[in-house]
């Protein structure tokens, strides 16, 4: 027993060593650790993205009272509605026009800023970021006061130089232009700051080499700047397209979809149909139309980014 007793602690030690080894082995399994570290992110994505999306799909298959399965009825009814197709056109028109304008203005502003000396650049950068920093609902309210059908301050200024009144929110094309203008005003600084960061990362030597080769400023832009910024442009455009497509607050505050539904976008129309009209399944069906369109955009943009990356490697 005494001899056995001398072995006993050693046996326990070996058992505890065994446990430690198992823990160490577990910790060394990179895939497990990686999984554990991504659990919070996965929980957020599942809870705040996947579940609501799946629930929206489920809702869209119910009848208006949400008491029975209705299959694809809500989608069929939307396809038959003139208003829905008008909303689809307007959403695409709004998103594409606004993103193109934001990207162009952002690109131009980034170039302008890039050529200002560092000391003064900070001031301009701060000022130009203001529209992006103000909560959109608040700044849109400011714009609404300027566009107000009866008391537009912009019209008052136009009248000073004898320009006739513009029905900013009363005529559908002007109302569409007004919505796009506000969206561009809010969103262009985001492009500007992203492009400015990208511009700063382009090596100066490339420009110097191009200049030695006799490249004009346009050629430097076309063959040096743009290829070097291609990925950031693609990602920014994709991100902005998603956000602009799903925009709600600008339309809600400025026009409420009017006149005659001619400024509704998917989000504002979905709210009108789903919450205001008490038809949540149809509202869910409207909002789901954004998903395939954006998924297609994301697929093509991300594929081109991947291809470019492979070419560069």
């Amino acid at each position: 027993m005494v001899a056995d007793g001398s072995h006993a602690p050693g046996g326990m030690a070996s058992r505890s060593r065994g446990r430690a080894n198992a823990m160490q082995r577990f910790a060394r399994r990179r895939s497990t650790v990686a999984f554990l570290m991504t659990v919070p992110l996965l929980a957020i994505i599942i809870g705040l993205v996947a579940y609501p999306a799946a629930y929206a799909i489920y809702l869209s298959t119910l009848n208006r009272r949400m008491t029975a399965f209705a299959g694809t009825l809500n989608f069929e009814l939307l396809f038959e509605s003139d208003t829905f197709w008008m909303v689809a056109f307007q959403s695409c028109f709004f998103a594409i026009t606004a993103v193109v304008l934001k990207a162009s203005i952002g690109f131009w502003l980034a170039h302008m800023l890039h050529h200002i000396p560092d000391k003064g650049q900070r001031k301009w950068r701060g000022m130009l970021l203001v529209p992006w920093v103000i909560p959109p609902a608040l700044s849109t309210l400011g714009w609404w006061w300027m566009f107000d059908p009866s008391y537009s301050s912009i019209n008052w200024l136009l009248a000073v130089i004898s320009v006739p009144e513009v029905p900013w929110l009363g005529h559908h094309w002007w109302a569409r232009i007004a919505i796009i203008m506000v969206n561009v005003w809010i969103g262009a600084p985001f492009f500007m700051i992203m492009y400015l960061a990208a511009l700063k990362s382009v090596p100066e030597q490339l420009y110097e080499a191009a200049m030695i080769d006799g490249a004009s400023s346009f050629q430097r832009l076309r063959y040096v700047t743009l290829p070097m910024m291609a990925n950031i442009i693609s990602i920014t455009v994709l991100f902005s397209l998603i956000v602009t497509f799903a925009n709600y607050d600008i339309v809600r505050v400025l026009t409420n979809g009017g006149p005659r539904d001619l400024t509704h976008v998917f989000a504002s129309y979905a709210f009108q149909v789903g919450i205001l009209s008490g038809n949540i399944p149809r509202g869910a069906a409207v909002s789901l139309f954004m998903f395939p369109i954006l998924a297609l955009c994301a697929f093509f943009v991300l594929r081109s980014v991947t291809r470019r990356n492979k070419e560069q490697m």
Binding site: P149, P167, L169, G170, T255, G258, P259, R260
Partner: peptide, 12 residues
């Protein structure tokens, strides 16, 4: 009516 009534909200 005023020509902008098509865009009037409840406060207009």
């Amino acid at each position: 009516l005023p020509n902008d009534v098509w865009a009037w909200d409840d406060g207009a």
